[in-house]
């Protein structure tokens, strides 16, 4: 067991947690949050792959690292758009929850 494997497993659990939260939490904002958790898990997984590619003095493969940086910024812009949609829906008096998410609750 190395630190690299450890963070790889950590990423796997984060993705699982995110998927669970995305399905189970009825609040749309919580779904956005869970989706971000999945995203960060995927980035971390990629970072783990980059770390494995360490060679000739570099701590990790710079190509996946650069792609992760791009990914983090794009994920932020998608989150901002999702939040803006949600706030607009709320301001327009739209439904606050997603029906099928709370289907069958007591």
């Amino acid at each position: 067991m190395t630190s690299i494997t450890l963070f790889g497993l950590c990423a796997a659990v984060l993705i699982g947690l995110g998927v669970y939260g995305l399905i189970v939490n009825p609040q749309p904002l919580r779904k956005i949050l869970a989706f971000n958790l999945i995203g960060s898990g995927v980035f971390l997984f990629f970072g783990m792959i980059a770390r494995r590619g360490a060679a000739s003095g570099l701590g990790g493969d710079p190509v996946p690292q650069a792609l992760v940086i791009t990914g983090i910024v794009v994920a932020f812009s998608a989150t901002a758009l999702a939040v803006a949609l949600l706030l607009r829906l709320d301001a327009a008096g739209g439904p606050s929850g997603l029906d099928d998410a709370v289907d069958g609750e007591s």
Binding site: V19, Y20, I23, V24, A101, V102, D103, G104
Partner: peptide, 20 residues
């Protein structure tokens, strides 16, 4: 609101399968 137990179990199983 608490989501139904069935939904939570299904979501948990799916999440566990992905993580595994």
């Amino acid at each position: 609101l608490r989501p139904a137990l069935k939904l939570r179990l299904l979501a948990g199983t799916l999440a566990f399968a992905i993580t595994a």
